[in-house]
Amino acid sequence: MGFFITFEGIEGCGKTTQLRRVATALEKQGFPVVVTREPGGCPIADAIRGILLDAANGAMVPTTELLLYAAARAQHVAEVIAPALAAGKIVLCDRFTDSTIAYQGYGRNLDRQMIQQLNALAVDTLKPNLTLLLDCPVKIGLGRAMQRIAMLEQNKEERFEQESLLFHERVRDGFLALAVAEPERFVVLDGSRTVEETETVVTEAIAARLPRS
């Protein structure tokens, strides 16, 4: 089997940048790597992503949001993640089930047991081998995220960035609570540092866990 690494954190924590750098480094070392993201990762899930992250869909109710994430994830796991792991590849995923618990459970205050059940339905027994949580203060993360969005002319995907600071504080608290509950899987890193400083600690965390043949 392969090795499944997920990158988690609030908006603007730097996880996407770090994931790309990790992928490049691992490929240079000769590892077979698959880079993917949630929501999305395959055509059907990408179509659902367009609905979920479009700020024009502000009327979406939390339960609809939750069910759409579960649907996208089920397709993504079946079509991309599970086959890649079965082929012995390293899968690097930008967000996974922990984001649903943090955003829809802690952020939206939906029932967390229901979310766990939906996650289980979508992924079966699949679980990340390692989850890197890039933590940073909400104001720093949102500031970065809004700067990034301001540079885009289209596909801004800003529905969550428009939520209140209190919402994002609850999401951050949710991620940290998940990390406390599963210390054997999570590594919490300081995402407020520079890209280069963060890359160093991310690389060290992965090197300490990644199986070597």
Rank of each mutant, 00 (worst) to 15 (best):
residue 206 I to T: 01
residue 202 V to K: 02
residue 57 N to L: 08
residue 14 G to S: 08
residue 36 T to L: 10
residue 24 T to C: 11
residue 166 L to M: 11
residue 116 Q to R: 15
residue 12 G to N: 00
residue 183 P to S: 14
residue 85 L to K: 06
residue 131 T to G: 00
residue 121 L to V: 14
residue 207 A to D: 10
residue 44 I to H: 10
residue 169 E to R: 12
residue 113 Q to Y: 07
residue 179 A to E: 01
residue 121 L to H: 06
residue 113 Q to S: 14
residue 194 T to W: 09
residue 42 C to V: 04
residue 169 E to F: 02
residue 86 A to L: 10
residue 119 N to Y: 08
residue 89 K to V: 04
residue 8 E to Y: 08
residue 34 V to T: 15
residue 129 N to Q: 14
residue 156 K to P: 07
residue 58 G to C: 01
residue 150 A to V: 00
residue 151 M to C: 14
residue 105 G to C: 07
residue 26 L to E: 07
residue 134 L to N: 05
residue 179 A to H: 11
residue 102 A to F: 11
residue 6 T to V: 02
residue 16 T to M: 10
residue 183 P to V: 03
residue 14 G to V: 00
residue 11 E to M: 07
residue 68 L to I: 06
residue 174 G to F: 02
residue 191 G to E: 01
residue 89 K to R: 15
residue 101 I to A: 11
residue 116 Q to M: 11
residue 93 C to T: 07
residue 144 R to C: 00
residue 106 Y to R: 08
residue 68 L to C: 06
residue 200 T to E: 15
residue 5 I to V: 15
residue 174 G to P: 00
residue 190 D to W: 09
residue 78 A to K: 14
residue 178 L to Q: 15
residue 116 Q to P: 09
residue 118 L to H: 04
residue 134 L to E: 01
residue 149 I to Y: 08
residue 132 L to W: 03
residue 114 M to Y: 12
residue 175 F to K: 03
residue 46 D to N: 15
